[in-house]
Design a protein around this nucleic acid. Structure first.
Ligand SMILES: [Mn+2]
Ligand SMILES: [Mn+2]
Ligand SMILES: [Mn+2]
Ligand SMILES: [Mn+2]
Lengths: 222, 222
DNA sequence: CTTCAATGTTAGTCTTGCCGAACTTGGGTG
DNA sequence: CACCCAAGTTCGGCAAGACTAACATTGAAG
């Protein structure tokens, strides 16, 4: 099941489709896919058709997009590569967690299976990347924790941060500054629905922190 | 002078043209370039023309190929990337010296300037790669030792291996087996011109070893 | 000085990935 | 229930990189 016969672009599409449903239920649309791939919808639509012709996904015109088992296997392989590389860059080359995503986005297509195996070995077979995302094991099983976004969490008791989206490096630096990282514990003080603000307190601190929707959507807790 | 605006293929052409004259004087031809790029001569010829149009090399039809200062700067950058990556794979990820070339050939186009700098730092600014090839420093100066191929060396006194071509992994494994690696010392017993055999003795061993032209062309000594 | 084979170039075609423009579809809204 | 608009699709075109086939040049041998 090597990934090598697919183009970089095909690998990215599959990975994106797979990750879109990793933390939320709503299936991905052509427009969102195009935005994430930084291409026009017409391009994404074309590409979807080609992937369908290769048997990697199921898609009827104007219908939903769903990976086949073959497509899913490729996607999981790419996710594994991406997250192992991010972890490697932090642990071995001293990168910050806000610097690794773009680097990994390119490297994931370039490293061999051999190199991925050596990195995995060198890191002691990690199960989570620097943002708390689970690293699927070599046999392709993801470990999916049951987590919800901070903005949807009830203000009761202490929760643990399990995952922070790596989409915005500047936001990651802000989170570092205030001590909001995977495994941090915090208490949700208040959810203000129409102000779209979530007030939290990090355990061990007294200070209340107000988070807007961008931040409270990016943080997942249990 | 970042290399990023060039295609992978352009980067490889420039690197190949540069390295062709690193250890020998004869300028590279279109046919040889095509072979090394694993491409047809017509493709190589086309590519040369495009690089000429970009001002990266000088070339009149049917004439010689020569890099401009701009082309040379890009080439040196690629050589630096390639050799730092090979060294990194050996030192940090436990690769054998026969395994690194193909991996580096792909990675060199994918890693960022930042990653190259961190690798260089992590390795303590090495000056030679696992095959003895000099690593140009970040400012682009290559360190060129005055070495000659084993097949052209006179059979007098002890010489030191400075460089072994990494073109053939199987040959590298053979060299490992017999203990012929960069910095090894050896004595040339005899050159048999028309048999194309070079007989050597590695210092510390008594056994004579006969090397054919493939091997004695790949090893450079001082 | 001619010839010719090796070397190099040009022309035409494919594939991939992208675009913009124009068209189709289908789920609300009035 | 008809309409409309956002979402999705199709189409033609372009650039890069590869190929084959045909053509051009060079220089070495006779
Ligand atoms: Mn990432
Ligand atoms: Mn990617
Ligand atoms: Mn190499
Ligand atoms: Mn390369």
């Amino acid at each position: 099941m090597p990934v090598s016969d697919l183009t970089n672009s095909a690998q990215d599409y599959l990975k994106l489709i797979w990750t879109a449903t990793e933390w939320s239920e709503t299936p991905i649309t052509v427009t969102v896919l195009a935005e994430r791939m930084r291409v026009r919808p017409s391009t994404a639509s074309d590409s979807i058709k080609k992937l369908k012709d290769q048997g990697l996904l199921i898609h009827a015109p104007y219908g939903t997009i769903e990976l086949t088992p073959a497509g899913s296997a490729h996607a999981v392989d790419m996710v594994r590569r991406h997250r192992l590389l991010e972890t490697f860059l932090v642990q071995v080359l001293g990168y910050g967690w806000d610097e690794v995503h773009d680097e990994a986005e390119v490297l994931e297509h370039a490293v061999s299976d051999t190199m991925i195996e050596r990195i995995d070995q060198r890191l002691g077979r990690p199960t989570r990347d620097p943002h708390g995302d689970p690293i699927p094991s070599a046999d392709g099983q993801p470990h999916r924790p049951g987590a919800i976004q901070l903005c949807h969490a009830e203000p009761e008791g202490e929760v643990t941060v399990v995952r922070i989206s790596d989409a915005d490096p500047a936001m990651l630096r802000y989170f570092s500054d205030i001590g909001l990282t995977p495994d941090a514990k915090l208490t949700i003080q208040k959810q203000r629905p129409y102000t779209d603000t979530t007030t939290i307190t990090l355990s061990g601190q007294q200070k209340n922190i107000d988070l807007g929707p961008t931040a409270s959507n990016a943080v997942w807790v249990t």
